[in-house]
Nucleic acid binder design. Structure first.
Lengths: 215, 215, 215, 215
DNA sequence: GATGAATGAGCCTTCATTCAT
DNA sequence: TATGAATGAAGGCTCATTCAT
């Protein structure tokens, strides 16, 4: 006679789990990606979960297996956009080049983001300057990260004697404001990509030496 | 026995035609004013026509006697905000002072707008960087007006030899981007008003002479 | 020139208001009546607000002008059923007849309720013995009212020496339980109305002298 | 390196056919038992198949290997409750004692059911007086069984000359109505168990000799 | 003109059920 | 056999807009 074994539960945290986790993560990304398109096109309120599901090629209910609700989906998307954008900016500033070159890289990086991830850029901006406090808080995190990165770059440049910064944070904000906002405004003004990129020198020059002539 | 009457509001319209037109305009302004509060607080979608009507002390249906629909109300509001903000900026730049002082005035004017008409500022920004194309187009008109005004100031300064501008439009955009975005970012970062105003000199100095030392 | 008068608000609590209030109350009743049919047929969860609106010949949204939500509609209905049923029972016991006759009246009254307001009866019972606490609490109120009324009848009968009640409340509950439950059970057992009414004497006799023979 | 394994439950089915059938039955019981808790707590509609599965320690889909759908699960549960309750009542009435004692046993048995199997009692009552026809039909079967059992008891008592019953069925329903409903009402009125049990004598006395004094 | 009761399209979310593994 | 990820029908509720008064 065979023994009757009864144990309460089994969970194996090995290969299968990892694969499942990977697939789950892949699906999350897929949903977020399609959601970004809708949110960028229509905004949080007008975007339709139903449509997002269709775009992602899944059923309505499936979205709720991956995100608690519409709001959480939006926040998750916002976080991924932030992560992705910050990576791009960090990569652009990774070199130890002269400050002029680094500022140009920064400008190009933002121009590239505005071009290659227009959805992300739009969503981020409307979250940052929109009215939903929770969304703004999340967007502000990215803003702070940007400033931190730029601050580091400026500190290095100051140590090298390339610039003079009495108030580092304020200067970093100034650089960010100018660069980001310039690219963004140029975008809504329908400047061509070429036009925008050609302005890089102008903007960097302005940051470094201003618009008043030396005397 | 007479009914119990409780009076809280009466409005009697007994004037002739011309006055009617004035009153109609006054009502439009009144509605727009209250609408601005709601739109700024909640955004276009979340704002509630019913609440706006209550705030304006009128019936829900009355709004539709003055505006075709919610969207038109929003656009009308946007136009009025633009007009009002542009007036402030124009007034700030009316003096024929030196460029440094004018740029400071510009900075102060934006800081003041962000402080005294936060609603308008928020609405304008979310329209500019939000997703609704019609709203964005309207906000861009203001952006262009700003640039025109700044361009004029820069042209005068160049004629006086105070600055050098190889590309006037681009430089104007640069000045606007920097000033407006700086004030805005400082706002979402919860900088105090005092802090922001103290940055005026820094920003103006940066615009004029940059952050790199003279050699 | 005419004077411009501006007062903040007017509310007249006279004829118009009263008429409005009457119409509002009429509409409430109409909705509740149709709702009762659906709730009795399908239960709270399966009942469909949409269908109730159709049955009442009004739009979906209109229901929400009269009731905060589905739950409140159900509770309002429950309260009205309770009020109505209690009136019937009170009327049946209003006479100062002998206890035998009064108990027969009570039995007939419940039989009539189960027949003429089957919806109300069903809804009340499923609320009383169902699982939703809020609904049960409301139904228990009616149960207590019933017991109070029956207690009064018993007290009068005891004063007249017709019955002996060592524990008045318990006896009242006993009388109610027997009468109501008998009628109800007979209903679910598909007894005919005639059959049920012919049982009145049996039940009353049992209440008064029991089923064991005098010795 | 080996995967990390966490064991909480194992079930090994290695026995031959007959045992499989037993285990299948055991699983059905297990599911029904957990389902009863949820159905009693939340009612048919609000009860959640997923939660029931979790409570039973099995997968959601597994339930559908044992029951066609939610409705069938509920009915199976209802049948088991009926069987179980009827057993308790039958056991209570198994003695050949005098009718007074048997009626007291009946009362105690119902009081015990309401106390020890409150879930079952609630489910049965809401099925009996609820709105779903299929459920009511199933509950009525139990009602009929109750009446049959009580009828037998009454017949024996009549043969012994302890009681007089012109209409046996009606009297049985009367006894059942009174006993069951009394216990149930006392329950929703939050009477304590002690209080309820102390009422046994009162109720039985009322059944036997009524509430009017002998003359 | 002014009103607000009435409307119904529209949408997020739940959950019983299925089915590939 | 057991599982749970996926599905999509269904429904409560909101709110911009209309229109009879």
């Amino acid at each position: 006679m065979w023994p009757k074994i009864k144990i309460e539960r089994i969970e194996v945290y090995a290969m299968p789990k990892i694969v499942d986790e990977q697939m789950r993560e892949a699906m999350r990304r897929r949903i977020i990606q399609r959601a970004a398109g809708e949110f960028a096109r229509l905004g949080f309120d007008q975007a339709n979960i139903n449509v997002i599901a269709e775009q992602a090629g899944i059923g309505k209910g499936t979205i709720y297996l991956y995100f608690e609700n519409k709001r959480e989906l939006f926040l998750a998307m916002l976080r991924q956009i932030a992560q992705s954008q910050l990576s791009v900016i960090r990569a652009a500033l990774a070199s130890q080049a002269a400050i002029r070159e680094q500022l140009e890289q920064l400008f190009y990086a933002f121009a590239q983001l505005a071009r290659d991830d227009r959805d992300g850029f739009n969503v981020y901006m409307s979250a940052l300057y929109g009215v939903n406090r929770a969304f703004r808080a999340e967007a502000v995190k990215l803003l702070r990260d940007y400033i931190d990165v730029i601050t580091q770059v400026l500190e290095q440049a100051e140590r090298r004697g390339e610039i003079v910064c009495p108030d580092m944070k304020a200067t970093a904000l100034l650089v960010l404001s100018l660069t980001e906002s310039y690219v963004l405004s140029a975008g809504v003004l329908d400047y061509s990509e070429g036009e925008i990129e050609r302005h890089a020198g102008l903007v960097v020059e302005a940051i470094l030496h201003g618009i008043a002539p030396l005397k």
